[in-house]
Design a protein around this nucleic acid. Sequence first.
DNA 1: AAACAAACCGACCAAGCGGTCGGTTTAAGT
DNA 2: ACTTAAACCGACCGCTTGGTCGGTTTGTTT
Lengths: 205, 205
Amino acid sequence: MDKNLKRMATMQRMQVTGLELFYKKGYYNTSVDDILKELSLSKGAFYYHFSSKEDFFIQIVENLVVRKIYSMLIEPIEGHENPLDLITNCFEDALETAVHNELDYGFVLSNFINEFNGRNPKIMKHLSDILKIWEVNLVSSIQKGKFNGHIDRHVDAEGVAIYLMSSYIGIRTLMVEMAPSARKYRFMTQLRQYFKSIESKPQTV
Amino acid sequence: MDKNLKRMATMQRMQVTGLELFYKKGYYNTSVDDILKELSLSKGAFYYHFSSKEDFFIQIVENLVVRKIYSMLIEPIEGHENPLDLITNCFEDALETAVHNELDYGFVLSNFINEFNGRNPKIMKHLSDILKIWEVNLVSSIQKGKFNGHIDRHVDAEGVAIYLMSSYIGIRTLMVEMAPSARKYRFMTQLRQYFKSIESKPQTV
DNA sequence: AAACAAACCGACCAAGCGGTCGGTTTAAGT
DNA sequence: ACTTAAACCGACCGCTTGGTCGGTTTGTTT
């Protein structure tokens, strides 16, 4: 596509373009030829590097999707500040990125989970693992917040994590469907409202 | 399948089976022949009743999906009681149904939105319409709650609706992926926490 | 029983799919 | 210059897909 991508190893280029198209059109609705056409490469090149379409996809998940989730949703909440602020900013940034991406097709991870759920257990396993990592990091962040006095000691960290993940997955679906900017704003306002209700109350004991 | 379904009009049977398979395996991953095999019918019968696979799907959405959303998510919140209670019970029931369905593949509507988003605008329009109906009903329910003194006058009804829809869509995705019962419980607990934060405070003026 | 249309059958088609394979190009080592 | 192997090409295979169509069955009307 670009001149500076010319030197990128063929395998890498295939994976990047593969993720682009799988994300845009879905796995089953994207053929190997679609990807190869985009890169002016042949079937031979593809099956020289990957043993199957499924294997190709799993490598994409392991390499590119994992990294995306880390940089967008995990690393931003890893500081020592108030977790509620970190999460608020993290979501704010992630959603803002989606708003400004005119070719947004939703949350990569939940899109794929939806597509493979009950259809391909092998791939589902890989996607579930990523989800688990996100969950674990959210939980430990919230627990840290409880310990540091930012979050009410009585709240269930697991519960908060599930609730946050749910709402994020959902808003990303809704933003794709219509009025992303307005929906993002409304979502963030309610998120702050919810956070206010679980932050530690000053008059404790 | 069942003896008592034998009298069901062929068109209806096709739609019911079609929805079953589309929901289970996805639209693109389900062939017309898959549906016909299940019913022991032929291509001729299918294309006598429907002009294309797409047309078939749209009729399924208009007939069956709409009704499902109405009975599961809209009618249960139509009473005159406290909307926060109505919505809580509505979500509780909807999620409990999912928990007890061992063959659960997530929220029909969001699954299809994910599959068709950016790929088939015509179908997307029909799905968006249903989402809009849900949103409108949630908003009016919440506004009623504000008027009747159940919900704090300062909350943004649109915002609450979007937040509720987001979280519901998300938790359905998460429940499909793992531990549905535990996740449902945690979700409902946090939902109640959130609702506590937007209910009308007794000491108002 | 003749007529007729609605409902249904199933062989068929072109196109597209994932995957294979014998052969060619490219580039580095000697 | 020769060898060797990695990288790549593209014709090809078997199979499935959505969709077509000439023909048969079924049920109702007269």
